[in-house]
């Protein structure tokens, strides 16, 4: 069973990442992978957060949706995990 990935569309400005990661860190919930990049002209960003299966995910997703800078949240089980592979290389 692949790890779930949370896909987020957010406003792109400094601080958004802290808002998002803060919801996880306050629960001592580790993020296994983060991929983030701007969308289109740069006003928005897309984020992929790889997480471990956890019963708190449903609540976390609701709180992610509640954030003022969050435009959409989708919990996906169909993301190709190879997108996180470059992160795994030990240098």
């Amino acid at each position: 069973m692949p790890s779930p990935v949370i896909e987020l569309l957010v406003n792109n400005h400094p601080g958004v990442m802290s808002h998002i990661t803060g919801l996880f860190s306050r629960r001592a919930f580790n993020l296994e992978g983060i991929l983030c990049g701007t969308v289109g002209t740069g006003e928005k960003s897309r984020m992929f957060l790889m997480v471990n299966e956890d019963k708190r995910l449903t609540q976390l997703i609701k709180e992610l949706e509640r954030l003022h800078d969050t435009l959409s949240v989708t919990l996906r089980n169909d993301i190709d995990h190879h997108i996180f592979d470059p992160l795994k290389v030990e240098s």
Binding site: P14, G15, S18, H19, G22, R26, L67, H68
Partner: peptide, 14 residues
């Protein structure tokens, strides 16, 4: 201030 108030506000701005 932005970092300190992140988890205790509904929203914050710098």
């Amino acid at each position: 201030t932005y970092g300190l108030t992140l988890p205790i506000t509904k929203h914050n701005f710098l």
